[in-house]
Amino acid sequence: MKKRAILLVVSLLLAIACLTGCAKEDNPKPTESTGASLKIMFVVTGNLGGGTNNDDVNKALNDYVTKAGGSVDTYECNMDTSVYETTLKQAAESGNYDLIVTGFGTMAEPVQNTAAQYADQKFLIFDTSIDYTDGKNPNIISVQVNQNHGAFMAGVLAALLTKSGVEGTNDANAIGFVGAMESVAVVDCLIGYIEGAKYVDETIDVQYAFVGNHNDSALTKEMALTQNQAGADVIYGVSQSDLAVADAALEKNFYAICSDADDAKTIEATSKDTANHIVTSVIKDYYNMVYPILEKIGNGEAEFGKHISISYADGGVKLARNEYFDAILPEEVKAKFEEIEKKIINGEIEVDSAYNATAEKIQEIKASASGK
């Protein structure tokens, strides 16, 4: 057995042992019950700490057991895809968990494979969807916000800003998009972004590129600089390295749209100048993506074998509005943005999604990105 596998088994056994023999010092006795207590294993694709999306989910899990009772154990996979399915299967095989929680598209296949082998084990996977056709995966709940709607509004904002004439924009009718990889989730954002920009101006040129991973900040910045050289003065970064787009925006005096967290507020303490070039961030609410489902599971109201979508109107995804948003955008741009936003909230605008579009439809939308 390889050393890594041995360490994985030992770590997981220690976590399981803690369920049966260790007191949970960090989880006080519940002060109010929101449902049944749950023993939860959180299989983290990456790491905890540093204010990541996984941290928001971890807080939701711990807040639930604090109120309702139970425990949360975690295993951090450090983005090592080779241990994803092994970890899930070992947790399921133990029989010690009421619920195994994990997230993101890279976990979809490992979760489905594990759920098929352990039919009595319940799973919750966030920020992706699962195939439920023909009664498949009856022991999984998947949940996702309508991120394509947030990306649509990012495209709207980018198109309005590039045409506004504010300092930092140019005469080229072009905006950009730098995505981590050409996964369904990232393409979902690209589709929304293109459609939002085209809603404002059919002739706008939406340049796009994919880095191939989430971690290459240097290449992310290089791609953003290349798009800026080709005329893009507002560029949306969909990646864990999205701040590299903001670095490029600072260097060449254009604007970035970031993702997942309010990056302008995050970076302002160390680089106020960089924050001044982040017009907004598209933020997915991971805490409220997960916590309400835990309550439904605890109350016996959850329907496994189904996918849950949280709309823009319900706050599943939003664009950060802070002092940088207010300082960069003219009032007429804000007013037009809010007018279109109301239509999204009211369901007056339909936005395509990579999760249910055919390959031909996705290609059609990509082809429409270039200016006319």
Rank of each mutant, 00 (worst) to 15 (best):
D56C: 02
V83A: 02
V83Y: 02
L61T: 08
L48Q: 09
G49W: 10
N58M: 12
V65Q: 03
D63H: 04
E93I: 01
Y75M: 09
D73A: 10
N78V: 08
K39C: 00
T45S: 07
T81D: 05
D80Q: 14
G69D: 13
G46K: 12
T66Y: 00
L48I: 11
N62D: 07
K89E: 15
G70K: 10
M41S: 12
S94C: 08
S94A: 14
G49P: 11
A92D: 06
S82W: 00
K59Y: 01
E85G: 01
C77I: 09
A92V: 06
G50M: 07
G49F: 10
L48K: 11
E76M: 15
M41C: 14
N47T: 14
N58T: 10
L38H: 09
V65L: 06
N54E: 15
M79T: 04
V72L: 08
V72T: 12
F42T: 03
D63S: 04
F42E: 02
A68K: 02
E76Y: 09
T45H: 07
T74Q: 11
N53S: 15
Y75V: 13
D63M: 05
S82N: 13
T86V: 09
S94G: 07
T45G: 03
E76V: 06
T87Q: 06
Y84K: 00
Y75D: 07
T86A: 15
G51K: 05
E85L: 01
D73T: 12
G70A: 11
T66N: 02
I40P: 03
G70W: 02
T66D: 03
T74G: 05
N62S: 11
N78P: 00
A91G: 13
D73Q: 15
N47I: 08
G51W: 04
T66I: 00
G51D: 03
N54L: 08
L88D: 05
Y64C: 02
V43G: 01
D55K: 09
D73L: 06
G70L: 08
S82K: 12
M79K: 08
A92N: 07
V44Q: 00
D55G: 10
V43T: 07
E76F: 09
E93N: 13
F42H: 13
I40V: 14
L38W: 09
G49A: 11
G51V: 04
D63F: 03
V57W: 05
T74M: 05
T86C: 01
N58R: 05
S71G: 09
K59R: 14
L38C: 06
N62Y: 01
K59W: 00
D55M: 07
V43P: 00
L61F: 11
V43C: 10
G51N: 04
D55R: 09
G51Y: 05
E76H: 11
E85S: 06
N53K: 04
Q90I: 14
V72G: 03
K39N: 13
